[in-house]
Amino acid sequence: MEIINIGKADGLPPVEWDGIVEKLDAGSAPAPDGINARTTWLATVNEDGSPHVTAVGAMWLDGRFWFQTGTGTRKGRNVARDPRCSVAVSIRDADVVFEGDATRVSDPAALARIARAWADSGWPAKPDESGSGITAPFNAPSQGPPPWNVYRIEPRSATVALSSDPGGLTRFRF
């Protein structure tokens, strides 16, 4: 892993990646009084090259982000055409932006595992009967009807901005 201390010129120490992963693994949320404390943002690339940013119910599991969407959604069409994307999330004392590629998950065992993780977190997802996606009794209306495709984002890099003392701004390339 390459570590670039973007805050060095301001006298800030590099961020410790292990501490960030520990917070992500624990499902750390920002401070309870934080604005948009539970929002995760996904940025994809529109056909004309412009960005498309939307809130998603993404989950951090096994060192990567997972999200689901319908085939007719803009984000679904975008990642099917161009897998490059970014995920931005706030955790306790830090904001983190990941860059990577979204890959559609079609392995039934992987779909069952991520559906179980979503169910354990309160959204009752399960694999659909065809084994190609997931379903649940409810989802955002804009997702269209189930089954919904599941995508895994393999991070290429992450930028972390600490909001606690002593602060820090560090980019990690994996």
Rank of each mutant, 00 (worst) to 15 (best):
L111M: 12
Q143G: 05
W148Y: 00
A29L: 15
W66T: 00
R84M: 02
R113M: 14
A9I: 08
R77K: 15
A117L: 03
V89W: 08
L111E: 03
T71E: 15
W66V: 00
F98E: 05
P124G: 08
D82F: 03
S164W: 03
W17D: 03
L162N: 06
T159K: 14
A37M: 08
R92T: 12
S164R: 14
A125G: 07
S121I: 10
D82Q: 10
G63S: 00
N46E: 07
V15Q: 09
D48C: 01
V87S: 07
D25N: 13
N36I: 10
T135S: 06
V15N: 04
A158W: 10
G63N: 02
T39C: 11
G131A: 09
S130D: 10
G122K: 09
W118Y: 15
W123L: 15
S121P: 06
G63M: 06
A58D: 05
R152W: 08
V56E: 07
W148S: 01
P141K: 08
G144N: 02
E2N: 14
V15E: 09
P145L: 10
A140I: 02
R38H: 13
L162Q: 04
T71S: 13
K23S: 13
P124M: 10
R113A: 15
A109R: 11
H52M: 05
Y151S: 04
P32K: 07
T135I: 05
P146S: 08
K126T: 12
I134D: 04
V15K: 01
W148F: 04
A115E: 00
W41V: 15
G49Q: 03
V45Q: 09
A161P: 00
I20Y: 03
F174Q: 08
T135W: 00
W118S: 10
W118D: 09
E47G: 14
A119K: 05
E2Y: 08
D33Q: 13
E2P: 01
K75C: 08
G100H: 01
V105F: 06
N36S: 12
N149H: 13
A158E: 04
A112Y: 04
N5P: 03
I3E: 13
S157W: 01
G49W: 06
A29N: 09
K23C: 02
G133E: 01
V15H: 06
G144Y: 00
P146Y: 00
P137I: 01
S28L: 11
V15R: 10
S90V: 09
R116D: 15
A88M: 14
T71A: 15
S132C: 08
V45N: 03
N78H: 10
P124R: 03
A37S: 13
